[in-house]
Design a protein around this nucleic acid. Structure first.
Length: 486
RNA sequence: GGCACGUUGGAGAAGAGGUUUAACUCACCAGCCUUUCACGCUGGCAUUCAUGGGUUCGAAUCCCAUACGUGUCACCA
């Protein structure tokens, strides 16, 4: 940061695609953090200049996401501000004006080439740029074709020689030969600007001091810098972020995308992740707090420790294992009531009415990574699983089907209605173990397996009895006794 | 293919010439605890920082080359 005397202004400028990619969310987060950690302002701007990709309701998705995550903005759609409108399609006239200003100054030119001709310039791999066919058209010809209403675009006139550099706050000095840059399109034939042009005009007009975005823009930024120069505007500070990658099933790493699984914020929420778990997990991808604190629970804490110089240059791989751990930590941090509020609907939906939902929820609280796992964890309650004799043999507790049958037969008559509560049930089984000389673990194992018919359950034997209720428990034990006899 | 950027363990990473026998977290493994699993606790998990050179008394940290990876070369952003 070199600019301390004036206020920092950052922005998040997504295009409304209908979903919030997790990489975009991280960009929004860092952009927000940069502004807020310096007492600056944060702007939301919608980049919807591609008329062919308009998605209805997509702006709401963006606004909802920022709302849920607490990334509030000082200016933007819905809240207004002094530099509006904040939706690019509503600023169409502004771009034309500035583009023509550039043409007049000799930094841009009209191009009448057809999309077909442009297409033919690309090789088989789609590589190969514009040949600057219209760069030196005479003023007369341009005027004539314009008057004739010929479709046209406006392109940036990149210097043919020399090189352009800029300083990136993360990557340092970046230099590109001007000859390696294309005369990119500024204004499209439909009159809308391209991203390449619109964001420069808007960032300047909106007073953005720090541009925070993904590193895929690292090598196109010199062109933008040239645009600032052509206008005589002060260039902003650039903060390019390392990419978020995913590892595919083939083991290859590439830009995080749908083929890696759930990668949009709403997909992750739907998969049972908590908003803050997602937010704070991605905060740690490409950035590390100085104290290396892995568990951050508030945006304030994050804001306090955020600094641009701690952003890493190398791409990071999105790891669902760690996200799961994060999520389980945040779930554990929930109060029992908060947990129940989210878990209960799921339990009522999947489990029969005789189930003690509250007790079950309490058992699940510390054992769950995501809410989406719950149905799978309680499947044995929702319906009786098929008999599996192998479960009755447990090495550690030294159980065999015969022993289990013996235990169940002995215990079953003592299971009276009166003691249907975990502690009492537990005491009963413990007493039986002591009296019979059988290991407590074996007794518990027999009962739990008989009742659950599953090896891994969200609770011990008597906890499950309590959850299932007396009637269902006894029915399951009777069934087990019968099956073991056969 | 050109250009740009990157490279510390399976993953996130600390480290910014000597106090590093490379921190911490996830995952994994082992043990303990235990009414199973989980939780919790304890311990293990890179003699090595992509490779090869060089600079230096000394390098993960500086330089060069190579390899590999990623990004980018659209009337998409």
């Amino acid at each position: 940061m070199t600019e301390h005397n004036s206020q920092i202004v950052t922005r998040f400028a997504p295009s409304p695609t209908g979903f919030m990619h997790i990489g975009n969310l991280r960009t929004a987060l860092y952009s927000w953090l940069l502004a807020k950690s310096q007492g600056g302002r944060f702007i939301l701007r919608i980049e919807d200049t591609d008329q062919e990709r308009l998605v209805p309701g997509a702006v709401d998705v963006i606004m909802d996401t920022l709302k849920i995550t607490g990334l509030d903005y000082d200016e933007g759609p819905g809240v207004g501000g002094a530099h509006g409108p904040y939706v690019q399609s509503e600023r169409k006239e502004i771009y034309r004006e500035y583009a023509e200003q550039l043409v007049a100054a000799g930094h841009a030119y009209y191009c009448f080439c057809t999309p077909e001709r442009l297409q033919s310039l690309h090789d088989a791999d789609g590589i190969g740029g514009y040949d600057r066919h219209c760069r030196d058209l005479s003023a007369d010809e341009v005027a004539r074709r314009l008057a004739a209403g010929e479709p046209h675009v406006i392109r940036q006139k990149i210097p043919l020689t020399g090189e352009t550099s800029y300083y990136d706050e993360v990557f340092g000095e970046i230099t590109l030969a001007n000859s390696d840059m294309q005369d990119q399109i500024l204004l499209k034939a439909d009159g809308f600007p391209t991203y390449n042009f619109a964001h420069v005009v808007d960032d300047h007009l909106m007073g953005v001091t720090h541009v925070v975005r993904g590193s895929e823009y690292l090598t196109s930024t010199p062109k933008y810098a040239l645009l600032y120069d052509a206008f005589g505007w002060e260039r902003p500070h650039y903060v390019h972020l390392p990419l978020l990658m995913g590892r595919g099933e083939d083991g290859k790493v590439s830009k995080l995308s749908k083929r890696h699984g759930a990668v949009s914020f709403q997909d992750l929420l739907a998969a049972g992740y908590l908003p803050q778990a997602v937010l704070y997990y991605i905060a740690l991808l490409g950035w590390c707090p100085k104290d290396n604190n892995q568990e951050i629970f508030t945006l304030e804490e994050l804001t306090k420790s955020f600094s641009v110089d701690a952003i890493s240059k190398s791409p990071s791989i999105f790891d669902y294992d760690k996200l799961n751990w994060f999520n389980s930590e945040y779930i554990k941090a929930l109060s029992p009531a908060e947990f129940a509020e989210r878990a209960l609907p799921l339990l009522k939906e999947t489990c029969p009415a005789y189930v003690a939902y509250d007790k079950l929820a309490a058992l699940l609280h510390t054992r769950v990574n995501t809410f989406a796992e719950i149905p799978g964890m309680v499947d044995f309650i929702a319906a009786r699983l098929p008999f599996d004799a192998a479960l009755y043999t447990n090495k550690k507790n030294k159980t065999t089907p015969e022993l289990c049958a013996q235990i169940l037969a002995a215990v079953r008559p003592q299971l009276t209605d009166a003691l249907w509560q975990n502690d009492a049930l537990f005491a009963l089984l413990k007493d039986y173990a002591a009296a019979s000389g059988i290991k407590a673990g074996a007794v518990m194992w027999a009962v739990r397996v008989a009742v659950a018919r599953k090896g891994v359950t969200p609770g011990g034997a008597t906890e499950l009895l309590e959850v299932l209720g007396r009637e269902e428990s006894l029915a399951r034990i009777d069934q087990a006794l019968q099956e073991l006899a056969e």
